[in-house]
């Protein structure tokens, strides 16, 4: 293996076609400085160095505390690279928006077996409509039955009655909405 590879790459192999060599030189202009292959989803840094976006992205991920150009060590950042679009490139999508996905913080909703997140009956019935669980935000309310929360108004007062009443209304609206979701 070692010998064959060496023989194949041997400098003594005469360059038969000079034109071919020239073409190769042109191609190298468009090679990614990291994988040394023709740049795909090409981006260019402010210092003028060309990379595949996936390659540069991985470099920036490897050294989050030292964001420098892999060629000239100038400061570099995700926001300050320019995507390159060649002619005939029909879908001119910013490569930074596709592979690999932006490593932003991600929130995942907890899995629910009933198919309806945050809805359940039991002691101290507690129901909340989280943002994202419902297509609208007006139900972002919390319902409490059983043990009132410490912040709730004392039992027996007018305010307590009013809160109970409002809670019930909201609960009925919510239940109607659920039924609508199920049967609509």
């Amino acid at each position: 293996m070692a010998e064959t590879s060496q023989a194949r790459a041997s400098p003594s192999a005469p360059g038969g076609d000079a034109g071919g060599e020239e073409d190769k030189h042109d191609e190298r202009m468009l090679e990614c400085n990291i994988c040394l292959d023709t740049a795909r989803d090409a981006v260019v840094s402010m210092c003028g160095h060309l990379f595949c976006w996936p390659c540069l992205h991985q470099w920036l991920e490897t050294r989050p505390s030292r964001q420098v150009c892999p060629v000239c060590k100038a400061a570099i950042s995700r926001e300050k690279v320019i995507p390159l679009y060649g002619r005939g490139n029909t879908k001119q999508e910013d490569p930074r928006n596709k592979v690999p996905p932006r490593p932003a913080g991600q929130r995942t909703e907890p899995e629910s077996t009933s198919g309806f997140p945050g809805f359940g009956f039991g002691e101290g019935f507690h129901m909340s409509f989280g943002i994202g669980a419902f297509p609208f935000g007006i139900f972002t309310s919390t319902f409490n039955f059983g043990d009132p929360r410490p912040s709730a108004a004392p039992r027996g007062t007018a305010q307590f009655e009013e809160e109970q009443f409002l809670s019930k209304i909201f609960l009925w609206v919510a239940i109607l909405f659920v039924l609508w979701l199920v049967f609509a």
Binding site: M1, A2, S5, Q6, R8, A9, S10, P11, C35, L36, D37, C55
Partner: peptide, 30 residues
């Protein structure tokens, strides 16, 4: 994949470099 691919490419290029031709550096596979 990227590591092996790049080493292969580097290997090919270094064999054509003037330093290897001039004998000041060498590279071989283990």
């Amino acid at each position: 994949n990227i590591a092996a691919k790049r080493i292969k490419r580097e290997f090919k290029e270094i064999m054509k470099s003037e330093e290897v031709i001039g004998g000041s550096i060498k590279l071989g596979l283990v």
